[in-house]
Computed example of a mutant assay.
Amino acid sequence: MIPIAEEITVPSPPKRVWEIVSDPAAVVSCIRGAELGRAHDDGSFDGSLVVGFGGIRVRFSARVALELDESERSGRLTARGRDGQGATRFTSTAVFQVVEDPATGGSRVTTHGEVRLSGKLAPLIESGAGAVVTRMARDFSAELIERCAEPEKTSTGFAQARVDVRSARRPLLLRIKTWWSRLLSGKGAARDSTTAQ
């Protein structure tokens, strides 16, 4: 059995973090080696994950079910599957929740659960699981923080771009205005001289 107990601090509000962690496609995009498969009528979906254990890379395929409680910003994930050769089977359960972090003004994502393995690769996988889980949690944390910050980056980027464009336009607009003023004043002078004749 491989225990799961992780806590991630994210410098974004709980509402934004929940948008990501409650969306399977967004979560999968945060996990290196993970792919999302087809959805089933009962709400479950297929997924796969390639994991490296020492020099061995194992591809697991699973049927995943996700239950969400939006009011509590919590969820329960269950998965059942096997590796590509059928030598190792697993079942996994995990409960996660997004809560506000008063200390930082951001959020904390807590996850608790376990993975149970059976089959000939189980001892090898379990022996290297600690390092693998730590690495995956670190990578997921970095990706989640980046994904949660994307709208803020984008809006800031657009705002900065608008400022830069306005700044770049000012000299050009000033030159056009000056040229137009000269043109109009020249025409006015020409009209004045014609009237005088």
Rank of each mutant, 00 (worst) to 15 (best):
L66A: 08
A196V: 04
S12G: 04
R57M: 04
F140P: 02
E35H: 04
S48I: 03
L117I: 01
G52D: 14
M1T: 06
D42V: 14
D83K: 15
V51R: 12
V17N: 02
S48V: 02
Q85C: 14
V28F: 06
R108S: 03
E6G: 05
V163W: 10
E72C: 09
R82L: 07
K187I: 14
D164M: 09
R89Q: 07
I176T: 15
D23C: 03
V115E: 00
R89D: 10
G119R: 08
D46A: 08
V27Y: 01
R135C: 09
S71Y: 06
T110N: 10
D101H: 09
V21A: 01
V64L: 02
E126G: 07
E100D: 15
V58Q: 01
R76C: 05
P14Y: 10
F45S: 02
R138G: 12
S29D: 15
K120L: 11
V133A: 09
R76Q: 08
E67I: 15
G33P: 00
R175M: 15
G81S: 05
C30R: 14
R135Q: 12
A137G: 09
S127A: 10
K153L: 12
D42E: 10
T104P: 02
E35M: 05
Q85H: 13
A87R: 08
E35F: 06
R59I: 06
V109E: 00
K187R: 12
A142D: 14
F90N: 03
V64S: 00
P24Y: 13
V133D: 01
Q85N: 10
R76G: 03
S141C: 12
V64A: 02
S141L: 09
E100N: 05
V109H: 00
E114K: 02
A131R: 04
K120Y: 08
R108A: 09
L183I: 13
A196I: 02
E72D: 12
S127Q: 10
T156K: 13
L121S: 04
